[in-house]
Design a protein around this nucleic acid. Structure first.
Lengths: 341, 341
DNA sequence: ATGAAAGCGCTAACAT
DNA sequence: ATGTTAGCGCTTTCAT
């Protein structure tokens, strides 16, 4: 299918092509790159030779000359990959088109290792660096006055002049709230992650603001805890105790939502008939495995990655673009857990 | 902490260092690389200049000369990252030490895209390629007679002469079976993924062989289905129907095990008192979120990655190593779901 | 229309 | 002990 030209192990240089076509190296180069003027016949001959020999220009040599490498570094501390992978895929979408390749580095959350990787990337002359993380928290930048542009995706540098692309946690919370209100719920509880997480606070604020605007308050306290199913189970019990008439729960993550769903079911509350449930993350194995399947907020991680890459490309191209934070709107994925009763 | 030397945006070449140290380029090179003999004082002077200017040798130039790039490609079709990320981390462990950087490419399961990426990697003169996948299934190789060595990790090429590193599915099944027998279970059921998956068949075989050797048979039929929680729920019901006295279930994945756990609980069977449960994958968010936390088979994905990288390094170094399949032993992670009653 | 030559940043012979 | 030179594979003037 891929044609008959078998690649041989020996590397073919432009010298070989030129020799095979009976022209000088310079001419071969021009023919291959479509530069300069030359007889059509000559160009054909060179191209044919190149094809026949399986010639691939050596990007190291090209880059050396052009002063470019057409590579960027992607540094992540999200070993587990849940969040950084979609970001990376998005980045690849945007970079791949431009023939830019990505060096992947996982810091294992170790600052020493991170420093080390950044050094290595710079030594390799990457043209830019994308830094991604597990959650949208502030983190120290990877270095000041680096010789290449840096974009933080799904994480934020403490240095305000750095460029960060983050999800709209607050908007996501608001989206969930409006959806629940629209489906007729009014006694809405909230079980979420640790209060020290900016993301948890923002999601809670998004919910709170929408409820306030509707003249409502959250059912029970806003329950900050852990990002785990176990906490979801506990939180649901606390919530049922504080607000027995609760008719909806917005959860700070899909894992928490699963825990909540389980407790609700065990306490005899039907989801969604008695209590509607909205998660956060749209982590499919979790959200689809939940019973019933979970309506949840999707942070559009892929888009975050795409945007980060585009910002980086602009910066590499020398366009200012301006520092600061870009917030990517979240979306709501509708499933059974909030179906109208 | 990292010293006061601020990096400036301008790239520093060895020429600059030589000039600053008042020596020739050649001497500067020798000083920096510790080759050749020279006065200690001169070497010091060059190193000091290099440090002061923030000099980093350009690996493109070095590579061009050495005919090496110190890079490898990592091609994955596991967009979601569940399996390929640990493999990648392991590979990084092994490669990073050798100053080899990794180009990451995600094929999105698209052969065209894969072909494209492989082309690009070869054009970049990677010195080797690691191919990883979602499950241990056979797949067509990425190409024949490629100019660099290729290692398949967590997936297997249909071409038997290719090098593949795969998990020990059969051994994992056997491990689970022996553990269940050791804790006094004898009526052991099996709910797993689709029969068309080699991995599912191997796991079932591992279980079956151990049971046979003990003079036992699986409880009920071996239930092949989907890799989903939903199927776990259904499968458990079928199993309870076929073998009401079942006292343990070995599941083909942690997701399936969660479904099984849920149905068991709803049918009034306590886990682990009445029925012990073993999963497969050690996917922590799933296994730990399960109630009770899941005993499960760990495929040692990281080790698979490490081994794949080491094979690749050997091959790059020109050591034969021999083709064929290497199987990495699995381990059993003990948690509540098989605690002795 | 084509070729020759310089040079990207670096290293390794070979001078001195 | 240090400097000079050639050359890795390629592109790009500048001659011819």
């Amino acid at each position: 299918m891929a044609g008959a030209a078998e690649e041989k192990a020996r590397t073919v240089t432009i010298r070989d092509v030129a020799a095979a076509a009976g022209v000088s190296i310079g001419t071969a180069s021009k023919a291959l790159n479509g530069r300069g003027r030359m007889r059509e016949e000559t160009r054909e001959r060179v191209l044919a030779a190149a094809r026949r020999l399986g010639f691939r220009p050596n990007p190291l040599a090209q880059g050396l000359l052009a002063g470019r490498t057409y590579t960027v570094g992607l540094v992540t501390d999200d070993s587990f990959g849940r969040f950084s992978i979609p970001v990376m895929l998005g980045a690849e979408d945007a970079l791949g088109a431009g023939q830019i390749s990505v060096f992947m580095c996982d810091t294992r959350d170790d600052p020493i290792r991170e420093r080390h990787y950044v050094e290595r990337l710079l030594a390799r002359r990457v043209e830019g660096i994308i830094v991604t993380g597990r959650r949208t928290e502030l983190r120290p930048g990877i270095g000041r006055d680096l010789p290449v542009p840096v974009v933080y995706a799904m994480t934020q540098s403490t240095d305000e002049s750095d460029v960060s692309i983050i999800p709209d946690d607050e908007g996501g919370g608001a989206l969930a709230a409006r959806h629940l209100l629209a489906t007729g719920r009014t006694r809405i509880g909230h079980v979420t992650g640790p209060q020290r997480f900016e993301a948890a606070r923002r999601r809670a604020r998004g919910l709170g603001d929408v409820l306030s605007a509707a003249g409502l308050e959250p059912a029970g306290e806003v329950l900050f805890g852990q990002w785990s199913e176990e906490w979801g189970r506990q939180g649901a019990d606390i919530l049922l105790h504080q607000a027995p008439d609760v008719d909806a729960v917005f959860c700070g993550s899909d894992q928490i939502a699963r825990g909540v769903a389980e407790t609700l079911r065990e306490r005899g509350r039907r989801v969604p008939e008695d209590v509607a449930l909205v998660g956060f993350d749209n982590w499919e194995p979790m959200a689809l495995g939940c019973r019933p399947p979970l309506t949840t907020v999707d942070m559009n991680l892929r888009e975050i990655g795409r945007l980060a890459a585009r910002h980086l490309l602009d910066a590499i191209a020398g366009e200012p673009g301006g520092g600061g934070v870009t917030v990517v709107p979240a979306g709501l994925i509708l499933r059974e857990s909030t179906r109208r009763g």
